[in-house]
């Protein structure tokens, strides 16, 4: 699985990543995206969430 990271300062809480890849992302109490411990999404789904972030707050760690 591709490792992803969220840049909290960039996240605007639009909720796109948990809507697309709910097995990997969720919103915390401050409505900022966080990464779940055990991802249940496939690579393509996660990549779609990465690409769809309007502020590019999700980065893939190589």
């Amino acid at each position: 699985m591709a490792k992803v990271k969220i840049i909290r300062e960039k996240c605007i809480g639009c909720g796109t990543c948990p809507a697309l890849a709910g097995g990997t992302f969720e919103m915390d109490e401050e409505n900022i995206a966080i990464i779940k411990d055990n991802s249940t999404d496939d690579k393509e789904t996660i990549q779609m969430a990465v690409d769809s972030c309007p502020t590019q707050a999700i980065v893939t760690e190589e």
Partner: peptide, 13 residues
């Protein structure tokens, strides 16, 4: 387009 996907989340929400 990728950059427009978040717009579809709006209706969903």
């Amino acid at each position: 387009p990728d950059r427009k996907v978040h717009c579809s989340v709006l209706g969903d929400k």
